[in-house]
Nucleic acid binder design. Structure first.
Length: 509
RNA sequence: CGGGGCGUAGCGCAGCCCGGUUAGCGCGUCUGCUUUGGGAGCAGAAGGUCGCCGGUUCGAAUCCGGCCGCCCCGACCA
């Protein structure tokens, strides 16, 4: 159908030039590269409070698109949104033994309700008179307040299941923070469901892991491996934690989403029972599942390059930017007419398109700026293009540029966005394949870990001791036990005992 | 909590060792003209209680003491 299907590359990559926001190359300092990209792409800023971040419009736009896609998937699987409070009575957290142990060390505690001016030094201080009768904690996660509530909502099997999600912020007082990857306050969604049977709850937890997998792969272009967490990596209070694990460009693993089968632990802690069809009183079965703004960190570290952010088209707040080029008013009128016509055409095709007609910045500046910000496709239209009825297309992922006719441009762009989406996935998938190694002995394990990192598949005897020893000696942890394991061969790397599972080891974020 | 680094203009830094004109440079900002197909050029301008408190001194960004904050690397974690 498309008459002009051949892209002609008219120019190679431009030589490096001095950039306003220089980005440290990845192979020089990966950690600094990440911070430079976040800054150059205007995703986030540091806040006056250590460990917190200001999410800028570019970053928040990404999050909004993630929310839209996920929210639709949650609704399609029967969930409803609700909102539970930020403040939780301190006593609630103590009710589930493992849960309190897991979170007690990182809770922000509210002890007073007002400020007053000190008589001694005139400084503002918490008013001693206003000390709360019971401390409040800022939610690190909402299981406790939700199960307190569910215990009031649920009496009968007729009240089940409850399938609720909430979009919220949570606070975990972290020692060491990194923008998006680990911040003291972060945005997330947390699903909390209540079920009549164990089977149904397990099925729910597995279903939501599938939802996360689809989201990661189809929207983020992020290939992930599904599996189960080992007991040591399990969520505090869960019976089983399922996860999706992704591999970043530096060879480190990142947990991209978790889904927990909570058994009856929280039901017991909050006395949440129901009468079943046999007229027996039974504890409710639970799940919880979440993904956070950390996914933005995953997205950055999976696709971006030394020129800045690379966004997958399906999540990009701006998918196409049009940069007009002109030297005088005559050219301006002609160029903008064409540029705006193309903008409208793309708009009717539901392409998120932006025409940047600002005259305060020059075209070259805009090229660099949108590349740093990761906009998937750039169209440049100048006097030559008006005359020849062409446009210049540049794709962010490969840097490829081509001159194409204006006729049929919307179709071409829509197809190109899909192509870029797929190409990003393929590239990330190949990278993961190339950096996944199967080993059978400990020396080989250490060698691979040291030389190239990545995912290392190895036999494990299922004991905490082996896992702990390997972590102690190499810093690598078991990221997950992949699903569907039949015959497991080989022996544990350190104990030499017969393996019970083949697991994925990696250094992790 | 350990190790390292840093606080001087909106941002990035120099000056500090060896105290002494009016605290300087780059980027950015503002004005004007020329420019505009890969981060423009020239000319001019604005912008600072040198992190905070105290001490030494005729005189402190600089020396001394204390405090505070932030970033990076580790231990802990999504």
């Amino acid at each position: 159908m498309t008459r002009y299907s051949t892209f002609c590359c008219i120019q190679k990559r431009p030589p490096p030039y001095i950039m306003a926001d220089a980005i440290t190359p990845r192979d020089e300092d990966y950690s600094q590269w990440y911070l430079d990209v976040v800054k150059a792409a205007k995703l986030a800023d540091y806040s006056p409070v250590r460990g917190c971040m200001i999410i800028r419009p570019n970053g928040y736009g990404l999050w909004e698109n993630m929310q839209d896609a996920l929210d639709k998937m949650f609704k399609d699987t029967g969930h409803e949104n609700a909102y539970f409070p930020l403040f939780i009575p301190q006593s609630f957290l103590a009710k589930e033994a493992e849960h309190v142990e897991g979170f007690a060390k990182e809770c922000a505690v509210v002890t007073h309700s007002r400020l007053t001016v000190s008589e001694e030094d005139g400084e503002l201080m918490a008013d001693p008179e206003s000390e709360l009768e019971e401390n409040l904690i800022v939610r690190p996660t909402s299981e406790t307040i939700i199960w307190d509530t569910y215990s009031k909502w649920i009496q009968s099997w007729r009240d089940l299941p409850i399938l609720i999600n909430q979009w919220a912020n949570v606070v975990r007082w972290e020692m060491r923070t990194r923008l998006f990857l680990r911040t003291m306050e972060f945005l997330w969604q947390e699903g909390h469901t209540a079920h009549a049977t164990r089977e149904e709850a397990v099925e729910e937890a597995r279903q939501m892991l599938e939802v996360y997998t689809s989201f990661a792969e189809d929207f983020m272009a992020l290939p992930v491996i599904q599996g189960t967490k080992t007991p040591s990596e399990r969520f505090a209070g869960a019976v089983e934690t399922y996860c999706i694990e992704a591999l970043m460009q530096d060879g480190k693993a990142l947990q991209a989403g978790t889904s927990h089968f909570l058994g009856q632990n929280f039901a017991k802690a909050f006395d949440c029972t129901f009468q079943n069809k046999n007229n027996e009183l039974e504890y409710v079965w639970a799940t919880s599942w979440g993904v956070s703004t950390r996914l933005i960190g995953a997205l950055i570290m999976t696709h971006s390059d030394d020129k800045g952010l690379v966004m997958p088209p399906r999540l990009a707040p701006t998918q196409v930017v049009i940069v007009p080029i002109f030297r005088n008013d005559d050219e301006k009128v002609q160029v903008l007419e064409v540029a705006d016509r193309i903008r409208r055409e793309l708009d009717t095709r539901d392409v998120a398109v932006k025409l940047d007609a600002r005259e305060s910045q020059r075209p070259g500046w805009k090229f660099a700026e949108y590349e740093a910000q990761g906009v998937p496709v750039r169209l440049a239209i100048g006097p030559r293009d008006v005359k020849n009825e062409n446009a210049e297309i540049a794709r962010r992922d490969t840097g490829e540029k081509s001159i194409v006719p204006q006729a049929g441009l919307p179709d071409r762009i829509v197809a190109l966005l899909d192509e870029i989406q797929q190409s990003l996935y393929d590239q990330a998938f190949s990278f993961r394949e190339e950096h996944t190694t199967e080993v059978s002995d400990y020396d080989e394990f250490k060698e691979v870990l040291k030389e190239e990192g990545g995912f290392i598949i190895a036999p494990w005897d299922g004991t905490d001791e082996s896992e702990a020893q390997i972590k102690e000696e190499t810093k690598a942890t078991i990221r997950c036990i992949p699903f569907d394991q039949d015959d497991v061969e080989g022996t544990d790397l350190v104990s030499g005992k017969p393996a019970t599972h083949r697991v994925i080891f990696a250094k992790a974020y």
